[in-house]
Amino acid sequence: MAMLHDAWLIARKDLKLEIRSRVALNQVVPFALLVLVLFAFALDPDRGLLEKATPGLYWIAVLFSGLLAMQRSFAVEAADGVTDALRLSGLAPAGIYLGKTLSVAVQLLVLEVLLGVGVAVLYGTSITGWLLLLATIVVATAAISTAGTLFGVVAAGLRVRETLLPLLLLPVLAPVLIGSTRAFEAALSGTPSEGWPWVGLMSVFAAVYVVAGIFGFGPLMEES
C-alpha cells in the first residue's frame, strides 16, 4: 500500500501548492464564471435557450476550465526540474499518478460546485434529480481527471504542450461530455432512469484510465 501512501503525499503537496499560490482561485475560477457569462451573451437569455442547454453548457465550461487546471498541474512540475526530483524521490510512479489525479479531481470538484451554483443562479435552472446529478459529477470528475493526468504527462515538458494537451484530450473526453450531458438532461427533465447507463459508461471509462495510468506512468516517467 506504499502506492496509496505516495499518492496521498503527492496530492497533499499539489493541493497545498494550489492553496498557497491561489492561481486556481484567482484565475481558473474567474475564467469558469466568465465562460458562463459568455454563453449567456452568445445565446439569447430571454428565450429559455440557456435553461434548456444548461447540461451542455455546464460541462463545456467544466472541460475548458478543467483543462486550465490540468495544464497547471504539470507546468508546476516542469518549471523547476521537479520532474527529476520526483523521479529520484523513490515514490512509486503509480502513486505519483494517483496523487496527481486526486489533486486534479479535487480542483475539478470545487469548480463543478461553483459552476453548479453559477448555472442555478445565472441561468435560472431548477435543479432536480439530486442523486443522479451527484453520481454523474463523481464519475465524470473521475473520468476527466484520470484521462487528463495521463495525457497531461504525455504532453508534459514539451514546448508544444499547451496546444498538444487539448488536441489529445478533448477527442478522448468526447464520450464523457456526451455521457455527463445526457445524464444531466435526464436528471433535470425528471427521467433519471435514462441517465444511469451513462453513469455506467463513464465508470468504465474511468476504470480503463486508472489501469492505463497505473501501468503507463512508470515508463513515461523514466526518461522524459
Binding site: 495521463l150 495525457f151 504525455v154 489529445l168 477527442p171 478522448v172 468526447a174 464520450p175 456526451i178 455521457g179 459508461l201 468504465v204 471509462f205 480503463v208 492505463a212 503507463g216 515508463p219 513515461l220
Partner: peptide, 16 residues
Amino acid sequence: IVGLLLVPNVFIVRQS
C-alpha cells in the same frame, strides 16, 4: 501510450 489507448477510446467513443 497514446497508440495503445486508441482501441479502448475507439470502443468507448463508438458506444457513446
